[in-house]
Design a protein around this nucleic acid. Structure first.
Length: 446
RNA sequence: CGGAGCGUAGCGCAGCCUGGUAGCGCACCUGCUUCGGGAGCAGGGGGUCGGAGGUUCGAAUCCUCUCGCUCCGACCA
């Protein structure tokens, strides 16, 4: 993309309403625009990141064997009356009447609706296991939205639902989600620690939250810092292999890591002091096993091998997709702006033309731009008639992980400059070598 | 929902207390000079002061109501 033809309304000054760094930078980098409290338009740059995050979530869900669906944002109230949650949910559920005075609502979650789909079409244990998921907008009418997309009222969320014949099967689905989530967050450049969110009955955990460490996090967390060194990396996990999946879960949950809700001071004290950490975290996902809570009242049953009809065991699993933009920025920025991890960056590399209008410089930038595009990469070429300082400041703000700087001075020596946004380190090399390096870097992330 | 603030040009703000022709910086437009980290000079465009009532000769300014947004608390993916 040529910046002169793009829509990137960056702000030099901080908008007054933004309190935390991710909100400030998202507004300043022209990623979002607030339309009402907790409700945002996604401008081109923000939308690109949102789509990349969605794409990673889709890929990792499907790798784990989960199947995408799409349910409406508007739901009939009757489904919620069946589960009893229409009255329980409270004022956070946005209730609407249509022209026929029918009670509708803007879905805050989808357990009822997915259960309705399931019971309409699935009758036999032979159709299990089944995990359906969607990425869809939700609405929760928070009393006090704040922090930009971190706590909006309208938000994009991946919600998945597993249906299994037995509790054991459902717990495997739970474990499968944990592993796929670990991989999902890693691809986004995040360290998200699964933390026990509430103690289950004896011997069984039934919910974990995934937290990204950040000083602005809403949750206080306690953990053994050796947990942050654990990496899934490129290892291939067979999601149908229960022992293997369970092994990974044990690896990532055996060290102490809990939110303040489930914190156990006595257990915490057993961690060697050098590894004990008390910090704050942003919740970016949660997995639940809840058994027959919805299947029973709503009649989601299958006939088992023994001919007996039984309610299915379910769980639900969420990833806060739009919130992740905020979480990533909170975890990865400096005083000049955002620092995108390669996995989610809106553009792969920025090209800064230091002397727009100079024949040789323009030509060199064009060559680099076209070469990168020919390699399937997505460069942002700053071809505006701006001074070098303004271009650098914009690039630093929007946070592309790599920058190729092209100016007459370097070109006279046959070199351009390749700069890492993260480290700030620059290297002079030929244009061809710079392109090769970028290609090589991104090969590892695709 | 309890408490506290703020709404004046696209953004950030002053002016309000003590009523009297609506200002500053950035951004935007034109010209010249600049040109490797948010340039300089000169000129220019843009605002029914959130909205509605009221007081007054006169309201951004005082009073009442209302809408919106933000912050602290409770709540929360």
């Amino acid at each position: 993309m040529r910046l002169s033809r793009y829509f990137l309304p960056v702000l030099k000054e901080n908008p007054a309403e933004a309190q935390i760094v991710s909100h400030r930078y998202m507004l300043r980098a022209g990623m979002i625009k607030q339309q009402a409290a907790g409700i945002y338009s996604w401008l081109p740059l923000g939308l690109k990141v949102l789509r990349r995050i969605e794409q990673i979530v889709h890929e990792e869900q499907q790798r784990a064997g989960h199947i995408p669906v799409l349910m409406p944002t508007m739901q009939p109230a009757d489904l919620w009356r069946e589960s009893g949650r229409y009255d329980d949910y409270g004022a956070e559920m946005l209730r609407i009447k249509d022209r026929h005075e029918r009670d509708m609502l803007f879905g805050p979650t989808n357990e009822e609706m997915i259960t309705d789909i399931f019971r309409a079409h699935v009758n036999s244990y032979k159709d299990l296991p089944l995990t359906l998921y969607q990425i869809q907008w939700k609405f929760r009418d928070e009393v006090r939205p704040r922090f930009g997309v971190m706590r909006g009222r309208e938000f994009l969320m991946k919600d998945g639902y597993n249906f299994d014949l037995t509790k054991d099967d459902a717990l495997h689905a739970y474990n499968r989600h944990m592993v796929s989530y670990l991989r999902t967050y890693e691809r986004m450049g995040l360290t998200a620690i699964p933390m026990r969110a509430a103690s289950g009955p004896i011997g069984g955990d039934n919910t974990h939250e995934f937290l990204v460490l950040a000083s602005t996090g809403e949750s206080e967390v306690f953990y053994d810092d050796r947990v942050t060194a654990l990496k899934l990396g490129n290892r291939e996990v067979d999601f149908d292999n229960r022992d293997e999946v369970l092994g990974v879960c044990n690896e990532f949950t055996s060290l102490y890591a809990r939110t303040d809700e489930t914190h156990d001071a006595a257990l915490f004290e057993q961690i060697p002091e050098a590894h004990r950490r008390n910090a704050r975290g942003i919740e970016v996902g949660q997995i639940f096993y809840f058994g027959t809570k919805y299947s029973e009242p709503m009649g989601a049953t299958v006939v088992g091998p023994d001919g007996v009809r039984v309610p299915v065991h379910m769980g639900s699993h969420g990833i806060g997709v739009s919130r992740l933009l905020g979480a990533i920025i909170e975890a990865s920025h400096d005083d000049k702006g955002i620092i995108w991890p390669e996995g989610v960056t809106p553009f792969d590399v920025g090209i800064v033309n230091l002397k727009q209008g100079d024949g040789a410089t323009d030509a060199a930038c064009e060559d680099i731009y076209k070469a990168l595009k020919a390699k399937g990469l997505d460069p942002l070429y700053d071809d505006r008639d701006e001074r070098a300082g303004a271009k650098f400041a914009s690039m630093d703000l929007i946070g592309l992980p790599w920058r190729i700087t092209v100016g007459p001075r370097g070109l006279a020596n046959g070199v351009v400059e390749l700069t890492s946004r993260r480290s700030g380190e620059s290297e002079e090399l030929s244009a061809e070598a710079a392109v090769d390096r970028i290609v090589h870097i991104y090969a590892a992330h695709r």
